[in-house]
Amino acid sequence: MPEPLIQIRDVNYAYTKEEDVLHDISMDIYPGEFVAFVGQNGAGKTTCAKLMNGILKPRTGEVVVDGQLTEEVAASVIARNVGYSYQNPDHQIWAMKVEDEIKFGPNNLSFSEAEVKEQVEEALELANLTDKRDEYTFALGWGERQKLAVASILAMRPKIIIVDEPTTGLDKDGSLRIMNLLQRLNKKGLTVVIITHDIDIVAAYANRVVVFAGGHIVRDDMVEEVMVDLDALEKADLRPPQHIRVALALKEYGVEVEMSPELLRENISNLLQKA
């Protein structure tokens, strides 16, 4: 088993003195994983993700990123290892041209000029934005701004990328494009964490699912296990994908339907591509 990239140990977090929004959270994120955080609004998904990139510091417990306690270093230092793409790309886009926007992160991290150039080219290519490098950032459509936000994080060459609600505001086609980009990156070895409500997306792309409800982790397991755990999903106000609901209903009538991880993934992918 490789060393975890991120270790979260018995973490509690509160925005105000009155109430904790995260309760005794513990988990490890390993290199190469594709993890999905799911749960209702206010369940603690984004708060947990912000603890992972050091923007928030735990009230109790500890978060260790690549061997370093987040409490001891600034978020801008953790940015070298943990990239965080915010839900709304307009919260981070500020440069006039696409290429300048992507340069911003690596320049902040003091990479050499040659390294910045190389990383920007790589990020443009990965995000399929090479032909848009000279375009005005705010003239891009929402889906492309979303990709630009991800590309600007990729150019920093983090070990892990957290993408908050990657498919929000996108149609099915746009959602698939951004998710396929994240899948390609994951296959190249990048650890990916997504925060989402879209259970079809989770079933099709994630390997591991962490279900949040009321500031607690109610299930943290492989996707095929979580998708059939109706209790855990119900606690997070979620329902499994439709074909799993059909398969589970058939099971009640004595009809066994194969639900192997491979089949599950294939079915969902096929359905999404057709949609």
């Binding site: 912000k50 990139n53 923007i55 600034a74 978020a75 801008s76 940015a79 070298r80 943990v82 990239g83 965080y84 915010y86 709304n88 919260h91 981070q92 500020w94 911003f104 992160g105 902040n108 991290l109 600007s152 994080i153 920093m156």
Partner: peptide
């Protein structure tokens, strides 16, 4: 709140305001 989120987003991209 918008300002805070933007500060967080840019710090996550290595911006050191201090």
């Amino acid at each position: 709140n918008e300002g805070n989120t933007i500060v967080e987003a840019q710090k996550s991209r290595g911006l050191q305001l201090e």
